[in-house]
């Protein structure tokens, strides 16, 4: 190209050098950012496969001595699934209603601005602080035992802002014409929201909730303070200490022998598989829903 119109295309050497230099740095930055991701995933998969077997998935750590091989994370998987399910049951209705308030009822009032601001601030609350809060309030002041339920409370606090933001975004996407058409037919506002707005935004909200679940499923610090530890299977999230997968990884990683480290890697692999499946499912739902594929 420059051969045809050299006098227009020419850029002085220094400027071109800078341009190419920055381009190189930008590409380099991306490469640097991807390296830890590849390294983490590679090590988790390659080290995790050593113990990622049926015994690991179906056995607990009960009666497994400090230096013994074997054992598994069944109790932790059960715990994580129950805690995350309970956290969703708590946070999804509250988050959804808050989003409905922000979008449908708030009308730019002062309360709406406060809530909106604090939803943002809440996303920045450190997970360990949410755990400490449940510890202080639920366990120390109300005298409740360490339990999966206490952990779910802490996780719910962490999920809440993510759910609100995701649901709010989806509700804002619902075209106003739909609402107005419904009002024109004499449908009251609340029925319009329940029958028209929410179904329209439904899949988007499901995606958002799944991403929120994926986010809290890997949280360790709040569980440490509220669920405590156990090596046995405890299927009742309301009574007694439970285990969680992240907690299991933390516990095993802190033990100074190779069999425990192997279990930690296998636990990390299980955790990442669960989280990636949630992420993938959320992506697929968005993909199937995208307008291009709509019949």
């Amino acid at each position: 190209m420059s051969a045809v119109t050299p006098e227009i295309q020419r850029v002085s050497g220094m400027r071109r050098f800078k341009d190419k230099g920055v381009q190189f740095l930008v590409y380099l930055a991306f490469a640097i950012a991807v390296v830890p991701l590849i390294s983490v995933l590679w090590l988790v998969v390659s080290n995790g496969m050593a113990r990622f077997d049926m015994e690991f998935l179906t056995h607990s750590m009960r009666n497994i001595g400090a230096r013994d091989a074997g054992g598994g994370a069944y109790h932790a998987i059960i715990g994580t699934l129950e805690q995350v399910a309970l956290a969703s049951i708590i946070s999804v209705p509250i988050g959804l209603l808050t989003a409905i308030y922000l979008v449908e009822y708030g009308a730019n009032g002062r309360l709406k601005r406060y809530i909106s601001f604090f939803v943002d601030i809440m996303t920045g609350v450190p997970s360990v602080v949410a755990g400490l809060f449940v510890l202080a309030f639920w366990i120390l002041i109300l005298g409740m035992p360490f339990s999966g339920w206490a952990g779910a409370l802490a996780l719910a606090i962490l999920m809440l802002p993510t759910v609100v933001r995701a649901a709010e975004e989806m509700l804002l996407l619902v075209p106003n014409d739909l609402r107005e058409a419904s009002y024109a037919l004499g449908v009251p506002k609340w029925r319009t929201i329940v029958k028209v707005v929410l179904p329209t935004a439904f899949t988007g909200i499901v995606t958002g909730v799944m991403l929120a679940v994926a986010r809290v499923a890997g949280e360790t610090a709040p569980l440490l303070l509220t669920v405590f530890f156990t090596d046995s299977i405890n299927e009742d999230p309301f009574n007694g200490p439970q285990m969680g997968l992240p907690l299991y990884v933390f516990d095993q990683a802190a033990r100074p022998n190779d069999t425990a480290i192997d279990r930690a890697w296998a636990g990390a692999l299980t955790l990442i598989v669960i989280i990636m499946l949630l992420n993938l499912a959320a992506r697929l739902i968005t993909y199937w829903r995208s307008p291009a594929r709509k019949r």
Binding site: L97, Y101, L111, I115
Partner: peptide, 25 residues
């Protein structure tokens, strides 16, 4: 409509609860 009041209060209440959680922490 009879449902409107409760629904409105429930959604406002959820928002206020969120502020309450921050204060409670």
């Amino acid at each position: 409509s009879r449902g409107d009041g409760p629904f409105r209060y429930a959604s406002t209440g959820a928002g206020v609860l969120l502020l309450g959680i921050m204060a409670a922490i």
